[in-house]
Design a protein around this nucleic acid. Structure first.
Lengths: 243, 243
DNA sequence: AGCGGCGAGTTGTAGGACAACTGTTGTGTT
DNA sequence: AACACAACAGTTGTCCTACAACTCGCCGCT
């Protein structure tokens, strides 16, 4: 491994993808309307058509736009409202705030302890290895919408970061220590409130959706294992399915 | 509208995307391994690099491969097994069969009736318009894994197709009448077996995951509204979340 | 009015060239 | 021997130009 690793700049195509995505979800282009042609976007961004096309294709496979041969690129129209989908890897609080709600996080506990059997398998660590476990409640407009358990291998997190783990986003901490997750494998399950290990009394009779996911960094190493229990009816999961 | 509309051929890039996808999920390239370089794929498929790159990018945004600048394209490794994700728009039976199970469909009923309030809103049809409703059970290896209700606006389906609707895939019928869905907006809910309208007795105590989705064709028109109830634990939902 | 073809505009594909990045290999220094 | 660094080959990212395929409205013809 080289001694000094300079981080490569973000590719142009990705920058343009992000910019267009922001503009679309911000409503700059109304649903159903046609976006500027590839040629126009080339001038606008001062890049080649290849780059614009790469960005466009990316948006298409995200389900945000529809590219029609010979006709143009159109903003997908889902009855007037665009919602944030589950397939994009973003923090829960971010998603809540994008819906215009007030997001709050309450830390319930933060402990360093031995990994259990399940966590060992998911995170690919040895039995008895230490992990940092954070239990939290996520509130939208003062109402509990989700309960989460995040587990990170202890050797990845310096003890100095422990305190900040419970406060802000787990993503932010992972970012800071250079372990940005760029994909996750998520299982979806339906569970009863009484089966949630850290549930409060008032959810015992509720149904919840469990998002059971392992986050991987760009090198393919698992960096976090999280179980997030969403209270049915208080948080709407949406998936854009394509093709 | 022109009198004769010839369907355009499928773009090369899409064909290559599909072929590579099949090869990858079939295990032709082992997880973590490097795929042939773009230049090699160009020769293999006899297409330009633009086309190969378009296909590659598509696979990347599906979460199947990881493209690394200066290094190559690698099959994403999720602990050794690649599973079919929920974000791809394919029939349930196809998905089951890809997992190596024996898929069967049992039609419970097929009726033409007035659309209810919910269906009107989702399908954007007028109250009292007729719809074709199909109730089915989907079995994997003889066990019921899902119960589905599919609703299609009656004016879209010639009565001659009614009989085939209950037997094969709903997708196949929609294909035949030129209404191939190319995207869907899906909500995910957790429900009790006792809340499933057409449930058998034996699922009353089970939990189910409801996939509540509207299918749109390429022109953006809703062509089908389906509610699919999956028995928790018998069908594993997986989502690949990226970036 | 209706039909049909033409043509401008747009996306899809081709081919060649160079820039940026990665991993390895080799070389020189300590 | 161990380490730092330069060179290099291989790969993906971007650019340019040109043409093919497709869509849709315009216009003239019947």
């Amino acid at each position: 491994m080289p001694s000094s690793t300079t981080t490569p700049r973000t590719p142009l195509a990705r920058q343009i993808t992000e910019d267009l995505r922001r503009r679309i979800v911000a409503g700059e282009f109304s649903p159903g309307s046609r976006l500027p042609s590839e040629a126009e976007l080339c001038e606008r961004y001062r890049v080649s058509r290849v780059t614009v096309r790469t960005a466009a294709k990316s948006l298409e496979s995200q389900g945000l736009v529809d590219i029609r041969h010979g006709s143009g690129m159109f903003v997908v129209d889902f009855g007037g409202q665009i919602r944030s989908g589950l397939q994009e890897l973003r923090s829960i609080t971010e998603t809540i705030e994008e819906l215009g709600l007030d997001a709050k996080v309450r830390r319930i506990s933060l402990t360093r302890r031995q990994a259990d059997e399940n966590e060992c398998a998911r995170l690919d660590v040895n039995a008895n290895d230490e992990i940092v476990a954070v239990h939290r409640e996520i509130l939208a407009d003062g109402e509990v919408v989700a309960i989460s358990i995040d587990a990170i291998p202890g050797n990845l997190v310096p003890a100095s970061e422990d305190v900040s783990l419970g406060n802000g986003s787990v993503f932010a901490v992972l970012d800071r220590i250079g372990l940005t997750p760029n994909r996750a494998l998520a299982e979806i399950h339906a569970v009863r409130g009484s089966d949630v290990p850290i549930a409060e009394d008032h959810v015992a009779d509720e149904l919840l959706i469990l998002l059971d996911q392992v986050h991987y960094d760009r090198s393919g190493e698992p960096v976090a294992y999280s179980k997030t229990y969403f209270v049915e009816g208080r948080f709407q999961f949406v998936i854009l399915r394509t093709r």
